[in-house]
Amino acid sequence: MNAHLPAALLAAPFLAAPVVGAVPPGATDAPTAPAPAPAPASASAFATALRLTVSGPAPATTAPSPDATVPSAPAARSVTLRCDPAGGDHPRVEAACADLDASQGRVERASDTACVLLYDPVEVHAEGVWRGRPVSFTRQYGNTCELNARTGAVFAF
């Protein structure tokens, strides 16, 4: 440490320190409002907000109907998922947020679930932020079983 630093620090308050309670000439001694406290760091800076989209078969089934026709896949459906605090229009918001927290924000995870080898493709997309980190995820799965096994509650809507 510099030997001259402590002496400079001790002398500094005496060089330009104002006298506490002194009123400059011409000023009134009326009380003034205290300066506003600095705003706390925004909690939303580390929040989660994702737009989730699923395109493909309906959650129930796309099995052939009794007249042997296969219903067409519905249009894409989307929801908003917010965590910290939980919100949005995702039907299983608490479970989806818990799945993202458990995987450190990764949408997809490893799974040893065995699914039927039925090709009924479903495509998913997630865009937004997880705890302040950008998220952009797009993947196609062979069927909804594979989707649910690999993404948990995140795309369960």
Rank of each mutant, 00 (worst) to 15 (best):
T151R: 04
A110E: 11
D89W: 08
H125D: 10
T32Q: 15
P24S: 07
T69M: 11
V23H: 03
A33Y: 10
S65L: 15
V20H: 01
A75I: 12
G56L: 05
E123A: 14
P134L: 03
G87K: 09
A63C: 04
F46T: 13
V93E: 05
A156Y: 11
S44K: 04
P59R: 09
V116S: 06
P36V: 10
A27C: 02
G132C: 03
A102M: 01
P121E: 04
V107W: 03
P57G: 07
A8V: 13
L147I: 01
P24I: 10
L5N: 04
A22G: 05
R82C: 07
T138E: 04
S72R: 15
T113E: 14
S44M: 10
M1C: 06
A73M: 07
R131K: 15
P74S: 11
R77G: 09
P57K: 07
T53D: 06
L15V: 14
L10V: 13
V107N: 05
P66G: 06
F157Q: 02
R51Q: 14
G87Q: 03
F137A: 10
G142N: 08
L10P: 06
S65N: 15
A153L: 03
A102C: 02
A86P: 02
A68Q: 10
A153W: 04
P121K: 08
S111R: 02
R106I: 04
Q140N: 10
R131C: 00
L50F: 01
A35C: 07
L117T: 12
P36L: 09
E146N: 02
T151F: 05
